[in-house]
Design a binder for these strands. Structure first.
Lengths: 102, 102
DNA sequence: GAGATATGCAACATATCGGTTGCATATTAG
DNA sequence: CTAATATGCAACCGATATGTTGCATATCTC
């Protein structure tokens, strides 16, 4: 689950797109395309990957598709880091206790 | 920079390896190999990717290589999420102020 | 309806990924 | 020294990623 999120963020174009969506709010594909050195199809592909990872929501409005940043999924990724750190911390704790009881 | 970190975390094997390093402390390649359905070379490759991303440190000790979890790099990735969220939040703030001054 | 606009779909080329295999090297143990 | 152990290096394969191009479709504007 989180692997998909991390994969979506492992590309500079996708990072840039997501940041711009968070900053600039809901936008069309063509708008997001500007400033990124990519074709329309390239940008669309990246947006689909971001959407499949849950980082972006999309809504069809007339002939255009509006993409929107989805803040909920970010929490999932952050939780993974939190778990990793707590695994690390609890190990340090264990080592410390072991040392103290000697 | 963070793209490399996210890429390293976009594979279930590498996630598992990193978790086990954080939990179990410094270990050899062969030890990390156990429990993961992969060849020695497969595991080595994953470890190198984790190391290039800065998530793992390695130290050659005699004929074996000890891999160790590096907690510092995790902070970089977390910072990226923090920046993303602050971009999002500041946008919401702007919208709210714009609404209030009407 | 006609033209412009926004997008989707499909095929293709090139590169990289994940994984395996075979062989070489270095260190340790007897 | 010899055998076992831990690893590195290089080539290979199939699958996937990234990016492009060409064509089709849907919608809006006039």
């Amino acid at each position: 689950m989180t692997t998909q999120i991390f994969f979506a963020l492992s590309d500079p174009h996708r990072q840039e797109i997501l940041l711009r969506l968070a900053r600039g709010g809901p936008q069309t594909t063509l708008n997001l395309l500007k400033g990124i050195g990519a074709t329309r199809q390239g940008a669309t592909r990246h947006l689909l990957i971001l959407e499949e990872a849950g980082l972006v929501k999309s809504e069809k409005r007339g002939r255009e598709v509006i993409r929107e940043f989805n803040p909920e999924t970010v929490a999932l990724a952050q939780q993974w880091f939190t778990d990793l750190e707590s695994a690390w911390d609890s190990r340090l704790d264990r080592l410390r206790k072991q040392y103290e009881t000697k």
